Simulated assay, not measured.
Amino acid sequence: MLIAFASAKGSPGVTTTVNALGAIWPSDVVVADFDPAGGDLALRHRDAEGEPLDPERGLLSLAAAARRGVAEANMAEHLQTADGGLDLLAGVVRPEQLTGIGSVWPAMATMLKTLPVDALVDCGRIVPGTPLLPVMNAADAVVFVVRPGIEYYAHLRERLRWLAEPLQIGKAGSIPVGIVLVTDSRDTAGPRDLDRLLQHDGHQVTVLGRIADDPKAAGALAGRWSRRIDRSLLVRSARELSDSVRTLAQAHTRIPSRS
């Protein structure tokens, strides 16, 4: 399965959500950092020896291989394993490094889609004209991460309107879209209220639940996994959320591809 995670405004917690889900995902998984503004995943992690991950090995090296043809690009050669065992495809450090990648986004999406493991992709902030539309079109589900607030909801609704046509939201066989709310662990009304708002606007999307706003655990995810993190509100909420995300994407994998 290929699942794309994105935001409609600012930095509401996409990277933390993808990181937390990747850490507890119940099957083999690759986490890919495709944030066009510059990725953080590789910066947050170290390898098993405590050394920084190589920013040149990941999206940049995979794109170079993809330009030579999908058949020649071996995904495993471009992955790095972070301390704790998470397999990462490091993103770009600076936005200008994306120059020249545009023509091979569809090929890289195909490579992720055909992996024998699940792929969780951090797409960062999505705006009209984003180069990541081929990745989102190849996904089995697109998940938006949002924080509570009128400004966040307004941008989310506008982004959903823009994506309605390219993703064919609401049509038979369309890519399902889910929403994750980053909020306090005690906020049980937030997801329900957001769902009512989106349904009232006619958006055919699924509010999947919440991910706990837990800054201490989010920071600790960049270090060695420990039982303390395992008991955190962030990880506990990620475990609950993972079932909903997988169910959303699995429903699409059982639908024949659109012609």
Rank of each mutant, 00 (worst) to 15 (best):
L132Y: 06
P116T: 13
E96G: 00
W225H: 10
L221F: 06
M108P: 02
G209K: 04
I179F: 08
A220R: 15
R228P: 00
I169N: 03
A218R: 12
A220V: 00
E151R: 13
L160C: 05
S226P: 01
N137F: 00
P166A: 09
G209M: 02
T206P: 00
W162H: 14
L167T: 05
Y152Q: 15
H155F: 02
Q97H: 13
E165S: 11
G129R: 09
L133T: 04
S185Y: 06
A172Q: 10
I229D: 08
H203E: 10
Q168M: 10
R161V: 01
A141M: 03
V92D: 05
P116H: 14
W162N: 05
V93S: 14
T188E: 12
D187F: 02
D214K: 10
L208T: 04
T206R: 15
P131H: 12
L156I: 06
R94L: 11
T110N: 11
T130F: 06
V145R: 08
A109Q: 07
M111I: 15
E96P: 00
L167S: 02
I175L: 09
L133F: 05
G100C: 09
P191N: 06
D213Y: 14
G209A: 04
A138C: 03
Q97G: 02
W105V: 13
S174T: 01
V180Q: 11
W105F: 15
P95V: 08
W225T: 03
L198W: 04
G219D: 13
W225I: 05
H155C: 04
V180A: 07
G173R: 01
V145L: 09
T206N: 12
D213C: 04
E151Q: 13
L160M: 11
G190L: 09
P128L: 14
V104K: 09
A212W: 03
K171E: 15
P191A: 07
R227I: 00
G173E: 05
I101K: 02
R157S: 13
L120M: 05
R159W: 01
R157C: 08
G202I: 04
R186A: 12
H203P: 00
E158G: 10
L112N: 06
L120W: 07
A139F: 07
P95K: 14
A220N: 06
V93Y: 01
T183K: 06
Q168I: 00
A222Y: 07
R147H: 02
D201N: 05
A164R: 15
D195G: 07
D201K: 04
G190H: 05
Q204V: 07
R228I: 01
L156N: 07
G209I: 03
V104G: 13
C123H: 02
D184V: 01
D213W: 15
K216C: 00
L156V: 04
C123V: 05
L98E: 09
E165F: 03
L221E: 06
A109K: 09
I150Q: 15
W162S: 08
P106Y: 12
V127H: 08
W105G: 01
T114Q: 14
P116K: 15
H200K: 13
K171G: 01
W225D: 08
K113I: 00
G178T: 04
V146I: 13
I150L: 14
K171D: 08
V104W: 11
D230Y: 06
A222K: 07
R210G: 10
L208P: 01
M111G: 03
I150V: 13
D195S: 14
